[in-house]
Nucleic acid binder design. Structure first.
Length: 237
DNA sequence: CCTCCCACTTGAACTATTTT
DNA sequence: AAAATAGTTCAAGTGGGAGG
């Protein structure tokens, strides 16, 4: 989970300021949104840092005998690869796994969410399936496709997010994805949790640094403690 | 109800243009 | 020519409205 602290609000973040009628709070919200976005790219980095990656897919695919283990090719490398035909819509990852003679290729679309967005899911589904169809014949592996919602533990929820338009076997949880890559899902979740702790602290610090929100918070706390006192009084009664 | 399209945001990667 | 700057595109998130 990326951090809010240290982020620079965008020039064009005025929309948030308008929502609150407060420039400083608008900038804080802009930073929050920036963090949401960058957390997605960060997840990719967390994953690829923990597996062996292929930086020349063409060279890899020219091999006569595929190596044992788990190897991952990223979107960029897929784009560069001339042996594969992506026609402008590359999947996030292509994973080659060989264990005890079985060679599998997993084409994966990864999302740092808990559900596939219904507005984009259809396009993503079609792009991934087309990619698999176009390229399965060029790969010396049994090819399968997967849609992974990293923060979802129930494959059925992912499947339903696709309006059941994918095979339920294509719906992949973050844990299943990590199992496939032979990396530790919980460890990645832990890493991100520590940033979340800093984020909540920083967010509250900032709220208290803005004079307008600080005084409002103080007002609310004061009236709540009055309420609490009254409740106690009622109880005693 | 569902689907599609839009508006708003950040950030990274390219591309193009201007400056030195 | 090289470097810096500016613009474009794309991927990622949200919500809302129009229309079937």
């Amino acid at each position: 989970m990326a951090k809010i602290r240290g982020r620079i609000p965008k020039e064009t973040s005025g929309g948030y300021a308008r929502v609150f009628g407060n420039e400083a709070l608008g900038e804080l919200m802009s930073k929050v949104q920036g963090t949401v976005i960058s957390a997605g790219s960060e997840l990719e980095r967390l994953i690829t840092a923990r597996v062996e990656t292929i930086d020349d897919l063409d060279a890899f695919l020219r091999k006569d005998i595929m190596p044992d283990g788990v190897l991952l090719g990223k979107k960029k490398e897929i784009k560069k690869c001339t042996a594969l035909n992506a026609q402008g819509s590359e999947p996030d990852f292509i994973i080659f796994k060989r264990r005890s003679g079985h060679q599998r290729c997993h084409i994966v679309e990864l999302k740092d969410g808990h559900i596939f967005d219904t507005k984009k899911a259809d396009g993503e589904r079609e792009a991934l399936h087309d990619f698999a169809k176009r390229n399965a014949g060029r790969l010396p592996y049994r090819v399968s496709t997967h849609f992974c919602a990293f923060n979802q533990d129930d494959a059925e929820v992912i499947w339903k997010g696709f309006k059941q338009r994918i095979d339920i076997k294509e719906a992949m949880t973050g844990r299943e994805f990590c199992d496939l890559l032979e990396i530790d899902y919980d460890e990645i979740v832990e890493v991100r949790k520590s940033d979340a702790e800093d984020n909540i602290l920083y967010f509250l610090e900032e709220l208290l640094r803005i004079p307008e929100t600080k005084s409002l918070i103080e007002d609310i706390l004061a009236s709540e403690s009055h309420l609490a006192e009254r409740q106690i009084v009622f109880k005693i009664d």
